[in-house]
Nucleic acid binder design. Structure first.
Length: 305
RNA sequence: GGGUAGGUACCGAAGUGGCCAAACGGGGCGGACUGUAAAUCCGCUGGCUUACGCCUUCAGUGGUUCGAAUCCACUCCUGCCCA
């Protein structure tokens, strides 16, 4: 049982981890025990009408504990890390004002980092500029960047990065590299961070099962009902594969396999980010089902044992 | 039983006497990331080694050759065709 003193600790908790580890169930249980409210830190769960595809918490969870920043945005709308930070800060202070504990849960590493460390003040993306730059070849992009920002530290093999650096330089009239500032530390003062992990084989098995479940619950129909996809929502894992299925270019089982594979590869990138960007307390959930079990180690770390 | 095409690293697939530890793709693993991040990009991937390098590989065995994944013989296995 949590002691009265520990219940009074309202330092926001971050529950990070790769897709499929069991963040959702874990966070709900934590919220129950510590009188918390859940704040999604997920770039895709923000979208309305994509509940199954983005594995949003179910009704049971959502009626048990208040959830924020989940399923509130039209898929037609773009979304980004800065937008997330603004909304999240607002929500966090409201939750605290209510005397509740904010529990930030999600798999979008950049969003969490932006929340804990802040983003450098740079202009937001410009869709018109981006589509204009998209016309250029890699070589042309590098050439332009070389003129505008000769000291650019961006990965020149990565067109996405080059485009963003160019975008910043063009919009501000100053070299993008001049506006850069390193994130100095992995520490996250003001937050208590947990990184949920599981053995890779178990995680893969869970992902395969989750993807099968998505199809059983009707993702294909859900995708068909999305009225309009904006630039951000269109990149959700599984979307392209399911659209291919709907066009008859993929069989159901090929589609399931493809989505499972994309998800597994995403998990690798998530783990790389979380391992190397933060110093969160690692909580191994291997062997635990999505019950209401919270490993003692996690409770100790949170001072709630 | 006869014919025929094959058996290459985790998988698919090039290579057909030295430039081969073996192209390329997939997968796997690792990494990067500051307003698209479920995105985008990079590296490694037989063993030992920091590296030079050494060792063991191309179904198996035995040959030919200075030298074989590559040529020859036999054996085993697989696909297809004919009986």
């Amino acid at each position: 049982m949590a002691s009265a003193a520990n219940l009074r600790n309202k330092t926001p908790i971050i529950v990070a981890g790769p897709t499929g580890v069991g963040k959702t169930a874990f966070a709900v249980e934590l919220a129950n025990r510590l009188d918390g409210e859940i704040l999604g830190a997920d770039a895709y769960q923000v979208y309305r009408g994509m509940e199954i595809l983005t594995a949003q918490p179910d009704h049971e969870s959502r009626s048990a504990v208040p959830h924020h920043l989940i399923g509130f945005l039209s898929p037609a709308e773009p979304f980004d890390a800065a937008h997330f930070v603004t909304l999240a800060r607002e929500k966090i202070s409201k939750i605290l004002a209510r005397g509740k504990l904010p529990i930030i849960t999600g798999g979008s590493g950049l969003y969490i980092k932006a929340l804990t460390h802040g983003l450098v003040d740079r202009p937001p993306g410009s869709s018109s500029l981006r589509s204009e730059l998209a016309e250029l070849s890699t070589h042309q992009l590098r050439e332009r960047l070389g003129k505008l920002d000769p000291d650019a530290k961006v990965d020149i093999h990565n067109p996405r990065r080059v485009v963003r650096a160019l975008e910043i330089s063009i919009l501000t009239g100053r070299p993008a590299s001049e506006l850069h500032r390193d994130w100095q530390t992995k520490a996250t003062p003001g937050f208590r961070g947990l990184l949920l992990v599981r053995e890779r084989a178990e995680l893969s098995a869970r992902i395969a099962e989750n993807v099968r479940g998505m199809f059983e619950r009707g993702v294909v129909a859900e995708v068909g009902r999305i009225p309009e996809l904006g630039p951000t929502a269109a990149m959700a894992i599984g979307l392209r594969e399911i659209q291919a299925l709907r066009r008859g270019e993929l069989s159901q089982s090929e589609c399931v396999d493809a989505v499972t594979l994309s998800t597994r590869r995403y998990v690798k990138r998530q783990l790389t980010w979380f391992r190397n960007q933060f110093m969160f307390e690692i909580i191994d959930l291997t062997g635990l089902r999505d019950t209401h079990e919270i490993p003692p180690r996690a409770l100790e770390f949170l001072g709630a044992a």
